[in-house]
Amino acid sequence: MLQVSGLHSGYGHKTVVNDVSLQVGSGEVVGLVGRNGVGKSTLLNTIMGILPVQQGSILLNEVDISHQPSYRRSSYGVAYVPQGRQIFPRLSVLDNLRVAAIAAKQNLGSCVEEVLAEFPALTPKLQSQGGSLSGGQQQILALARALIIRPKLMLLDEPTEGVQPSIVDVILEKLGEINKRLGIGILLVEQNLEFIDVLADRVYVMDKGTVVAHLPAGAIMNDKRVQHEYLGV
């Protein structure tokens, strides 16, 4: 599904992501962990085309999208839930969903309805402004907005950050369903190792811009050495 090979990227001439290779198979959940500032978000931003590729390649379903403009990449079936959720603050909840449907040229009415059936908690909030929602509500809206484009792969950047524990459980459950029932693959950047352990099949560990370990998800919970050395736990 997603194949990243020898990828270098960063800001201007500065390289943050240094020779990263990783794969996410169709319908697979893959974790990506590492301390703050090791390049995880930079990697996701590069996959989405927000930052340019300096070297290496990104393939989605065998198509090289390394040099496609950002706005074309979602049409290859990849949806992004960025760090901080990035809900449009001055659009209503409904408009946050509608704009995704319009951008993806989906049928407006039916795909918004489908997503609301999936996330009924959003229905009473439809007319509220995005900026007025709590962190957890925004995270749910961001997931819903990503699902609108009917992706095959979702990139999630710290979906539990700043979210109250009760909603963390809801998000965990929803992501499990999204993966199992809809068969959507997930590349998950997350600090919460238990969250990763429940969802992911395998985990890449990043340090200083590069992948330093690749383990089954269960192993990372038990491997105190990896946790200590690369995660500062």
Partner: peptide, 24 residues
Amino acid sequence: TKYGLMARAASQLPQTASALGINA
């Protein structure tokens, strides 16, 4: 209008708009 909604989204968060498929 659809254009208006996309324009407001792109003006608030250009990168997110483009990740959703809006040609800013």
